[in-house]
Write a protein that binds this DNA or RNA. Structure first.
Length: 870
RNA sequence: GGGGGAUUAGCUCAGCUGGCUAGAGCGUUUGGCUGGCAGCCAAAAGGUCAUCGGUUCGACUCCGAUAUUCUCCA
């Protein structure tokens, strides 16, 4: 069965059991601070488990693209070494939100595997949670009884808390799980060791394929469990593993999910899969990683140096590294695989096809830049080896190479090994750990339990139409972090405060109690679909009704910037072409930032055209037309622009100004006239194929023009109001360089004369050409003069003194030969003479200077100089 | 968000613990030689040593801040 059909059959099966098929959520998570990537099928439904939202259908099924790069069962560094771990994978799942529970979940899972996919019942094992005495959780007897009806008891295994009790995190919904395992070993192997002894033992051919989680508890901050009012089912089946089972192969990489990629890698790199273990690992690493990276980029996540972008960069660099070392790829090649991937998976995931061009460009650029890093690192490593005669390279050195210059540690170890050097791995690990501890303590967040104040559900955001509302506090908690200190997070029954999202910053404002107490709301965010208000303090009395008031001026400026962002988007597509796609935006009160795909610099003329386009629409006073109750399809049919990598609900909000229609949850002005004016202040690149425009509107634009005008008039005033200021400045510059040249020539002339005069004053004393004199030159001039005289006269001993800005300066020059011959040291001499001018000094044997605060002593110092050659 | 590094000629970079009058290669210009594949030889031009401040007799070098950039960690 082809992988495409395996996926289809799964979804169809649950559709026949009254489940709605929903699309995969984006792999990159945008508005959940606790998670960077979707790492399990349940992520997009988290809000339903937490009770923060209600699903349209209580039965849902999907295939979810997931990314795992850390965690108990998957470390990035392990992927590729075996045949069954991945960074990016698909998770097939079926879900019940307070609907069916263990009975149906278990029976349907068995039916699908054995009757639809026709997997031999004899090779399947199931596990049931054995209970945990410490936490007083009983054995999952319910699941056990259900399984007993289907499976012979000798194929039911009891699992401990680690394997069979599922938790989302330290806090939140959790519950026991039942896993289905499959034994793919040969008959001989099975005869030697029974399959049930290998379940959960990390055997590559005895693997878990489906995990059925029964969510029935909530874990509180103190570690205790409470029963949930509604019970849920959350299942996940690894798509790639299922394909392995159904296609009768022994490795995920032998399924048709991976074979096209592997063939292409063989072709590009001229290597063969299946002959050499090192080569195989490299090929698997690349095949796996290119999927993860391409999907992430298609979801809008570019490789970068922070957060999710950094994870993507690391994955891609690992692929490059393996290609570099084991497949001898010294030039960019990973990007060439995107085409194959897009052909193969573009049907199930159309974003891949749409973003193919971008994916290729971004990956190629990233490859080139990393190959440069590697080159640089190789040179540095060579240097380290030269500086290490005992051939024992310290972990500190290797860490520096890794930490500061980005040179991978495994490459360091490999090269050192080849050259017969050893590496202190332990010290390296220690250094790494230190760095981790530093970072962790800097970003640690401690959150307390939610304290309920008023019961009830929250209505959510009501601030499209109003900036003020009478609200009640539903719950609050205290959060402590190094960055922000102690803060309170408050949840209201409804709120006019816009939470940070869709690129727009969260609102600020105040909360007024009936008694007149005022609490400042410093920011508003969204977590698991819950709107959270941040404040430094809590009101004295939490129970009453409060007036929540948004900072209106700030919101108005933000709204102007957000609406301008839409017009800018439209302008870009008009002026530059429809290949322009939004790749990110940041809408604040004082400026806006817009990233978009475009492959060349936007010219000054185009910038002008874009500004004009937007300002024309501002001048046309286009009213806001808002539709909050459209379906996604209706909006798209109307011509609305949706964003890749964005998760849309079943009802969307469309924002329209004239011909600009976008799906958007942000706040906007009522009429484009409220934007006043739009001005681009910068344009530049953020990544290959991605450009960034920064712009300002309304008051900020006014301020900009005012300050620019001020600077301009100041310049004019300084230049005495010339007709053409630009020409005036250019004249000044020309004149300046001309004068500089003249001064230089004059000074040279002067020095020449002075030099001639001084030369005549040189006296021979004891075979040494000696001169001690006060001159009127600065430190640089004296040095110049000294060396010039030194070039022309042998056996020279010079002492110059000068007064500069009320301070005394002495300098001493001694011909090199003379210094060596007579054992003279200018530095020592000048130090001794320095006491006459109340100062100190030093330098080399042949030239030294001293400074002091007593210019009156210069003459005395000069008189004393002669004794050094007597 | 936290740490580390870098910023020197048009380009790629040296310049060690403060003091050799800031250098090299490539490139540019000029002159000479030469029948090519990076032609050869000679000479010259080209630098606010990122910016600002501090320490010092003296700062490219040490310290602090800023900007830009690379990199690791979260």
């Amino acid at each position: 069965m082809r992988s495409q059909d395996i996926r289809k059959h799964f979804l169809e099966f649950f559709k026949s059991k009254n489940h709605s098929i929903v699309p995969s959520a984006p792999m990159v998570i945008k508005d959940d601070p606790t998670l960077m990537f979707t790492n399990a099928g349940m992520n997009q439904f988290k809000e339903f488990f937490l009770g923060n939202g209600t699903p349209v259908n209580s039965r849902v099924t999907d295939t979810q693209k997931c990314l795992r790069v850390s965690g108990k069962h998957n470390d990035l560094e392990e992927v590729g070494k075996d045949t069954y771990h991945h960074t990016m994978f698909e998770m097939l799942g079926n879900w019940s939100f307070g609907d069916y529970f263990k009975k149906e979940a278990i029976e349907w899972a068995w039916e699908l595997l054995t009757e639809v996919y026709k997997i031999d019942k004899e090779i399947l094992y199931v596990s049931v949670f054995e209970g945990n005495e410490e936490e007083e959780i009983p054995v999952d007897g319910e699941a056990l009884e259900l399984w007993k009806k289907i499976v012979p008891e000798d194929r039911i295994i009891f699992g401990n808390k680690k394997d069979n009790f599922w938790e989302m995190g330290d806090q939140g919904p959790c519950g026991p799980s039942s896993e289905i395992h499959v034994d793919l070993r040969s008959e001989e192997e099975k005869a030697k060791i029974p399959g049930r002894e290998l379940v959960n033992q990390d055997h590559p051919l005895v693997v878990e394929i489906w995990n059925l989680v029964f969510i029935q508890f909530n874990r509180k901050a103190d570690g205790s469990l409470e029963k949930l009012p509604a019970q849920h089912v959350d299942t996940g089946m690894g798509f790639e593993r299922l394909c392995m089972v159904l296609q009768g192969v022994k490795s995920n990489y032998d399924t048709d999910v991976f074979t096209p990629l592997i063939k292409e890698i063989e072709k590009i790199t001229g290597s063969t899969y299946g002959k050499n273990e090192e080569t195989d690992i490299a090929i698997r690493v690349i095949a796996d990683h290119v999927r993860a990276v391409a999907f992430a980029i298609a979801d809008g996540q570019l490789p970068g140096s922070t957060g999710a972008g950094y994870v993507i960069r690391r994955i891609l660099r690992r692929a490059i590294r393996y290609g570099f070392t084991f497949l001898n790829q010294k030039e960019a090649f990973v990007y060439k695989l995107v085409d194959t991937l897009s052909k193969q998976m573009g049907e199930a995931f159309p974003e891949l096809r749409a973003q193919q061009n971008l994916c290729e460009n971004v990956i190629r650029e990233e490859e080139n830049s990393f190959l440069r890093t590697l080159d640089q690192g190789l040179i540095l490593l060579d240097q380290i080896m030269q500086e290490t005669p005992d051939k024992k390279v310290s972990g500190k050195k290797a860490f520096e190479l890794y930490d500061t210059f980005g040179f991978p540690i495994d490459l360091t170890a490999l090269i050192l090994g080849e050259k017969g050097y050893s590496l202190d791995q332990k010290e390296f690990e220690e250094e790494l750990q230190k760095q981790k501890d530093r970072s962790r303590s800097a970003s640690k967040v401690i959150s307390g339990d939610w304290q309920e104040v008023n019961a009830g559900e929250t209505e959510g955001f009501v601030g499209y139409d109003t900036l003020e509302a009478e609200v009640k506090i539903l719950r609050y908690r205290k959060v402590k972090s190094k960055k922000e200190g102690e803060l309170y997070q408050l949840v209201f029954d409804k709120t006019p405060f816009y939470p940070e999202g869709g690129g727009q910053v969260g609102d600020k404002g105040v909360l007024e109690s009936e008694s007149g107490e005022v609490i400042y709301i410093t920011d508003t965010r969204k977590e698991n679909n819950l709107i959270i208000h941040l404040s430094k303090d809590l009101p004295q009395d939490l129970s009453g009704t409060f007036k929540a008031v948004v900072n209106a001026a700030r919101r108005a400026r933000t709204a102007a910037n957000h609406s301008a962002t839409h017009l800018l988007h439209q302008a870009l597509r008009n002026v530059l072409g429809t290949h322009v796609e939004q790749k990110g935006s940041m809408v604040q009160s004082d400026y806006l930032r817009f990233d978009f795909s475009h492959f060349s610099k936007v010219t000054a003329e185009e910038i002008q055209e874009i500004e004009d386009f937007v300002n024309t629409r501002i001048a046309h006073k286009l009213p806001l037309v808002e539709n909050r109750e459209m379906t996604y399809e209706e909006a798209i049919n109307d011509g609305a622009i949706a964003l890749f990598g964005e998760k849309y609900g079943d009802k969307v909000r469309a924002i329209r100004f004239g011909d600009s229609i976008e799906l958007c949850g942000g706040t906007h002005v009522g009429n484009t006239a409220d934007i006043w004016h739009f001005k681009i202040i910068s344009e530049g690149a953020v990544a290959s194929g991605i450009r960034r425009i920064e712009a300002i509107t309304s008051e900020a634009a006014k301020d900009y023009f005012v300050s620019q005008t001020e600077v301009y008039s100041e310049i004019r005033a300084v230049l005495k109001n010339p007709k053409d200021p630009v020409k005036a400045v250019m004249n000044l510059q020309d004149e300046n360089t001309e004068l500089k040249k003249q001064v230089e020539a004059l000074l040279k002339d002067k020095a020449k004369n002075l030099k001639g005069d001084l030369k005549n004053e040189i006296k021979e004393i004891n075979g040494v050409n000696f001169l001690a004199k006060k001159v009127d030159l600065d430190a640089g001039g004296i040095k110049d003069l000294s060396f010039q005289l030194g070039d022309e006269t042998d056996n020279l001993f010079l002492i110059f003194g000068t007064e500069q800005n009320g301070k005394a300066l002495l300098s001493c020059y001694i011909s090199k030969e003379l210094a060596a011959e007579k054992d003279l040291h200018a530095g020592k001499i000048v130090k001794e003479l320095g006491k006459f001018i109340q100062g100190g000094g030093g330098g080399q044997p042949f030239y030294a200077t001293a400074g002091g605060k007593n210019p009156a002593g210069i003459n005395e110092a000069l008189q004393n100089a002669e004794k050094y050659i007597k």
